[in-house]
Design a protein around this nucleic acid. Structure first.
Lengths: 349, 349
DNA sequence: CTGAAAGCGCTTACAG
DNA sequence: CTGAAAGCGCTTACAG
């Protein structure tokens, strides 16, 4: 009796059959007698036999796993996305490995190239600002890739995202339907060096949706209400200097559309510092329906991204690519949903 | 010329050497002439040769990867923990796989047993309410395991956590030093079915730290200020009924210690609904220094968990276990740090 | 229904 | 310094 892990040969020896039969029995192949299969199963159980994942993968030529690379951000909106991705992968008999970029020298590209040493068959990249680089890295290691979240302005991959423009239009229309007429839009920035944000495609799209709604409603275009925000990704700031200035200028917005939920935190603090109450003086809305929306006071009216569908679709696309299909580089946009909370409705406070 | 991935034999054939020499050259073994090594390297590069991870693992008998299993929670306080864990693992030449429980039928135990099919050599479990079950599952698949965060009351594993009791005492002492005398403590619950929380060890420890400080300061013990909270994990609630009742009863606390940062969101909303301002009327403090602390208004004074050290230490312990050391089941507690923000100091608003 | 053999792609003693 | 051979633990045609 050895102390090390039993292998298939051990099971075969004890069962008095060939290794091939053990393999067939344990893998549920039809061409084994039920009697033999039962006996082998029992012995395997007793021995605590677990087939070696590496040997099986080597023999089969594949490991049936895919990898998701998640960005170096604290606001984990991608958690529900990965949950559904893991489900979809499991449904197809695949594992999902999650690889945080955080802590890896060399960033996204280094993480991707590192996958060359991991038994994985495809890559999902989340929130990449530069799809061209991701595409090149994946090509280099010979793995198919799908992107989630349209951060990259140049679409070089099959990409899954929310209908950002539609969603923004919908929520601004909601503000208008509440009687708001001077709706500010915050979060866009001319600073292209903001990590994972900058002039991301989704920012552009959401601003466009805002303009769609304002224009369609025949509201006076008020460009001073579209604020440039120097560092929209920074959660540590207490208030927003640009909004401070706007409020001091006497612009008097009656609503603020934040291009992402997390921006609402400093916006609410800025409003409260000016003695303005939400939603009575100013209504506030966000986009994403991520954790921040629930933590704020009041809780935030927002557009919910279809996280579950996004994860599933990304995996579906990736599995198709793995089985040889060539995926065109284009966006697959999914419907968003309006979620009403206290920041736009006194009755919901 | 085939379209499939080149293997080591291809490189050997083209270089006109044996496969063993290619292996040695590419793995940096000393016993290869520099000239040969260079030539082989060049050819491997041109061919885009990437050694098969599975073949190498099968041959070596190990894959040099460890797995972290993260809980089904939206508040990703474990993200910075995993970042440092990934760094520590990489320093030792190991990969870190992250496996979310979310989306897996059968929960933690199913995820652990699923690792039997993954080329991984050890497991880090994060926030497990029942270490005994985790220990049994890992034993079954023959993998060593280390826990992060003391959620389980019964310590059955080598565990890494913050000094919860010390930290709580420190922050309550801070409140006392600010002149607070009637300090409420919220977050403990007698409802043991709260997922991942319930009567978790860290809850117990933090309450104990609170009592340590109050007692040491000679403040009148006021048991009505230690609130039972029916569902502390639920972020969707707007206000806290138990706190509502306390405030209506005329108890007039001058400070509230939240056992976790995320609890401060509904606490702040409850206070504001009662017309109380923070920190003037009531100071508020939390524990963790996770994302919620920065989103709130005002931002939250809190005890920071040593996330980086926690991830590193967990990996260190796990690697020792992998190399054969037997780890006793005991907690390894790491120092916390007081972080001052606007919720306890007007000057920091 | 079952077995013996070949082989997945590497690495590492063993010879020379 | 280099090569030929064995083998890691499986699976799967190929025979019977």
């Amino acid at each position: 009796m050895t102390t090390s892990r039993p292998n298939l040969a051990d099971v075969a020896r004890i069962a008095g059959v060939g290794p091939a039969t053990v393999s067939r029995a344990l893998n549920g192949r039809p061409d084994v007698s039920e009697k033999t299969r039962e006996r082998i199963r029992k012995i395997a159980d007793e021995l605590g036999f677990r087939p070696s994942a590496t040997a099986r993968a080597l023999r089969r030529g594949s490991f049936r796993a895919v990898s998701a690379i998640v960005p170096d951000l604290v606001w984990g909106w991608w958690e529900p996305v990965l949950r559904s991705a893991a489900e979809a992968a499991a449904d197809a008999g695949f594992h999902l490995f999650v690889h945080p970029i955080a802590g890896t020298e060399g960033g996204l590209e280094a993480v991707i190239e590192g996958l060359a040493n991991v038994p994985t068959e495809g890559v999902i990249v989340v929130s990449v600002p530069d799809q061209a680089a991701a595409r090149d890295s994946c090509e280099r290691i010979g793995l198919p890739v799908v992107a989630i979240d349209d951060t990259s302005r140049s679409v070089q991959l099959a990409s899954v995202s929310a209908k950002n423009r539609d969603g923004a239009r919908t929520i601004v229309e909601h503000l208008i339907s509440q009687g708001c007429e001077r709706i500010a839009c915050v979060g866009a920035t001319s600073n292209e060096f903001t990590p994972y944000w900058g002039e991301g495609l989704f920012v552009e799209e959401r601003v466009a949706g805002y303009r769609d709604a304002v224009t369609a409603a025949g509201l006076a275009p008020a460009e001073e209400l579209v604020l440039d925000w120097s560092s929209p990704g920074d959660e540590s700031i207490v208030t927003v200097p640009e909004l401070d200035r706007l409020l001091e200028s006497g612009a008097e917005p009656d609503a603020i559309f934040c291009l992402a939920d997390l921006l609402a935190a400093p916006v609410l603090r800025t409003l409260s510092a000016h003695g303005l109450s939400v939603p009575d003086d100013v209504a506030v809305a966000g986009f994403d329906d991520e954790r921040a929306a629930l933590l704020l006071d009041p809780q935030l009216t927002t557009m919910r991204q279809p996280y579950d569908q996004m994860g599933r679709l990304a995996v579906d696309l990736l599995l198709r690519a793995i089985s040889g299909e060539r995926l065109p580089a284009r966006r697959h946009e999914l419907e968003t949903e309006l979620v009403l909370r206290g920041s736009t409705a006194v009755s919901l406070r």
